[in-house]
Amino acid sequence: MTAAQITAIQPVQDAQDQTGVAPFGPKPRHVSPGRIGIYVFLVIAALFFLIPVYIMIVTSLKGMPEIRLGHLFSLPAEPTFQPWADAWLHACTGRDCNGLSPGFYNSLKITVPSVIISIICASINGYALTFWPYKGANLLFGLLVFGAFVPYQVVIYPLIIGLSSVGLFATLPGIIIVHTIFGMPILTLLFRNFYAALPVELFKAARVDGAGFWRIFFSIMLPMSVPITVVAIILQVTGIWNDFLFGIVFAGRSNWPMTVQLNNIVNTTTGVREYNVNMAATILTAAVPLIIYFVSGRWFVRGIAAGAVKG
């Protein structure tokens, strides 16, 4: 019997010996308990992640009398932005009542130069380590990577002494230097891995053309480093903005970043706790990294994966 004949006969046979429907087309999907379980788990997990922030947002929009009623989850009956204004302008830390805004500007003054300087240093490091390794360069790199794992507490005190001795302790340049130091290990690793993945012919061709260290860096490597630089910027901006320890130790009272001011506002208040103002202040502090997170999307994840050792 030939293939053609079988094909011709088959449907007829089926119609005869299958009284109902023969298996045909896609397998009928019934919603399996397993699948429901998956969604239930994911939705509950999502609630776990969302509820605290939901509480913060609704509470920050309520007045204190409404908060005292204790309806934690209810939407604000009379939404008010006064707590937000207070948090920004009037919230008190000890005696000064200037709100969070000075902290915001301090954080800006710390973050912008720190990010720029640390990325410049790290890109040069990565480039030199990849294409111009000198004797001992790899040892230096090993020490640097070691630095990525060291508990900060081991290095903080010597840094305090060192910066004091040159008059930079508790100053803006001091905190910028500290952020540059602690950003260097992970950023150097990031850039080195990026350059090491580039075709080495690129470098060799430039060498043959007679270009030197800086020339190759500025006209060939730097223009190609845009993607990794974006990752580095995301990593550093969120990292430095969120920093608390270095800020409180090294920045000095007049330069305290937003996180330090927030903690002071919330945890040192005497008398009545203004929960709505505190929560508004917290949301304001979290706003910058959150905006970066939601705007950068997948880049953010890539940054985490790349900089997985950054604490």
Binding site: Q10, A22, P23, F24, G25, P26, K27
Partner: peptide, 17 residues
């Protein structure tokens, strides 16, 4: 892969699903 239409027999047995 789940097919969209048609059926598949292996050794005379309808194995589509």
């Amino acid at each position: 892969l789940d097919i969209s239409e048609g059926r598949i027999f292996i050794k005379g047995k309808n194995v589509t699903w």
